[in-house]
């Protein structure tokens, strides 16, 4: 099977004050299959968000290639829609105007896009808030709206940058369930960055562990548990143990480098 998304030798350097440039990402290779949910996890500062931005086309000075459906992509586009950490929505647009934004850009008639966006809003349970402004929504609701907007742009792959980082524990769990349900239903391919090991295991088919800076792929862990997963099952806990050991190793390395 041809992979949906391929990353080839992605290297990203930042200019720094002393002469040696800072290597943020080093030779990242990764391929993601259709309808896969892949989670990237790693110590903070390892360049996870940068990697997601590179895929989204929001970073332009990097080495390597991002290949979507066999074609090299550089510029940003709706085929790689991104949901940001803060569930960014355009604050001057109502929820429904945000959701239909991608279709508005395509010039789709108002009635058609309204109908479709209402369907997506229903899917995420926000139909009563269609005409509210983003500031009127709670954190979880904003995430739902941002997800609906992303799904509406019908991406080949949906990129999520720590989407639930700012939510409280309960809302976070609800949103994880919601996301999984949406992804299974729409059969979308997804790449998600997170800090939470539990979230990673609960959601993903594969977990990519990135090393401390410079970020490289340390390990790819296949998660072959059936959904819905039980967070307290022995297999779940076993995987969690393996991954947290790997991450702790990296965190220690980061600390040593900093001292």
């Amino acid at each position: 099977m041809k992979p949906k998304l391929e990353l080839r030798d992605i290297t990203k350097m930042f200019a720094s004050d002393n002469e040696r440039p800072l290597i943020a990402l080093n030779d990242i290779n990764l391929s993601i299959n259709e309808s896969d949910v892949v989670v990237i996890i790693g110590p903070s500062g390892c360049g996870k968000t940068t990697l997601l931005k590179i895929i989204a086309g929001l970073e332009n000075s990097y080495k390597g290639e991002v290949i979507l459906e066999g074609k090299s992509v550089k510029a940003p586009g709706p085929d790689r829609c991104m949901v940001s950490q803060m569930a960014t929505l355009l604050p001057w647009r109502t929820v429904i105007q945000n959701v239909e934004f991608s279709k508005e850009l395509l010039g789709i008639p108002k009635a058609d896009r309204k109908k479709e966006s209402l369907e997506y809003l229903k899917l995420v349970g926000l139909e009563q808030f269609a005409f509210s402004y983003p500031f009127e929504l709670s954190g979880g609701m904003r995430q739902r709206a941002a997800l609906a907007a992303a799904l509406m742009s019908d991406p080949e792959i949906i990129l999520l940058d720590e989407p639930f980082g700012a939510l409280d524990a309960q809302t976070r769990k609800d949103m994880q369930e919601e996301l999984l349900r949406l992804l299974q239903r729409t059969k979308k391919t997804a790449l998600l960055v997170t800090h939470s090991i539990e979230e990673a295991i609960w959601l993903s088919d594969r977990i990519v562990i990135i090393t401390a800076r410079p970020g490289r792929v340390k390990e790819v862990v296949q998660v072959n548990l059936p959904h819905p997963r039980n967070r307290t099952s022995s297999e779940f806990i076993e995987i969690r143990k393996v991954i947290s050991e790997m991450i702790e190793e990296e965190v220690k390395l980061t600390k040593r480098n900093h001292v």
């Binding site: 989204a56 086309g57 929001l58 940003p76 586009g77 709706p78 790689r80 829609c81 991104m82 940001s84 803060m86 960014t88 929505l89 355009l90 001057w92 647009r93 934004f101 991608s102 850009l105 395509l106 907007a149 992303a150 742009s153 990129l159």
Partner: peptide
């Protein structure tokens, strides 16, 4: 910049940015 990024990843072209993002923001 996050509003610009939102627009770009939802399919906005450079020419859309002025009317859809910059001016309203």
């Amino acid at each position: 910049i996050e509003y610009v990024d939102f627009a770009l990843t939802h399919g906005a072209q450079r020419r859309h940015l002025l009317t859809k993002v910059i001016i309203p923001a």
